[in-house]
């Protein structure tokens, strides 16, 4: 297919050759789409937007435990790094495992993983491949819990785009998996989680 490469480049160059001049790159401020004001309370904005996309927000392991019990989720996975700070505080009523066995994905009602950042502007959680202990644990269970410290809150998408870095798989998650394919009716929980929970910890409570 190296032949195809040459063919394509030649065709593209020939197509562009007659242009007397080429459209310049617009000189624009990438921040022009930001809707976050300077000095805005990011925690408040995040909470508002996260709830607007039907996300659940809790601010302590105890509150998480209460929410899980209330909704009948008694067995799940927790990132080993978060075991001390979060996983162990859910017991004994809740069974928390620190390995995700892909042969039995439906055995886990929830999966708790770290998020590297979150975006206040849109109510978005940022998962990076290097710090997400298992892609499947963040995806297969009905409930996904993202844990991050308040200091990881970014104002807007511009800030988040600037931090994409060299991680090979960054995912911005904005609420539960959903579809409106059937007659435009919104259904949550298609392939991914039907419920997205954020456990927002104070910086000191998050494992370093």
């Amino acid at each position: 297919m190296s032949g195809d490469r040459e063919k394509i480049f030649q065709a593209v160059r020939e197509a562009l050759a007659p242009l007397k001049e080429r459209a310049p790159r617009p000189d624009y401020d990438p921040g022009l789409v930001s809707t976050v004001k300077a000095g805005e309370d990011l925690r408040k904005r995040f909470a508002e937007r996260w709830r607007a996309v039907n996300g659940v927000l809790v601010d302590s392991p105890a509150a998480l435990k209460a929410w899980l019990l209330e909704h009948g989720h008694r067995r799940g996975y927790c990132d080993p790094v978060l075991m001390e700070a979060v996983g162990k505080r859910l017991g004994p009523e809740i069974d928390v495992l620190d390995t995700f066995e892909r042969a039995r994905p439906d055995d886990y009602a929830f999966g708790i993983t770290r998020a590297s950042h979150a975006v206040a502007e849109t109510g978005t959680v940022v998962l990076e491949d290097r710090t997400t202990s298992a892609r499947l644990a963040a995806l297969a269970p009905w409930v996904h819990v993202s844990v991050f410290p308040a200091g990881a809150l970014l104002p807007d998408l511009q800030a988040a785009a600037a931090r994409l870095g060299d991680d090979p798989n960054v995912i911005w998650v904005t609420g539960p998996s959903k579809t409106a394919d059937v007659e435009g009716i919104l259904i949550e929980g298609v392939h991914g989680p039907g419920v997205e929970v954020v456990l927002l910890l104070d910086d000191a409570a998050f494992p370093s």
């Binding site: 978005t124 491949d129 499947l136 994409l164 090979p168 798989n169 995912i171």
Partner: peptide
């Protein structure tokens, strides 16, 4: 496309999974 501020999943993919990552 859908009247959302951002779609639920926006994925940025550049290469094979990270060394520490079991899935992918």
């Amino acid at each position: 496309a859908t009247g959302q501020r951002l779609t639920v999943y926006t994925e940025f993919i550049s290469g094979r999974r990270a060394a520490e990552q079991p899935d992918g």
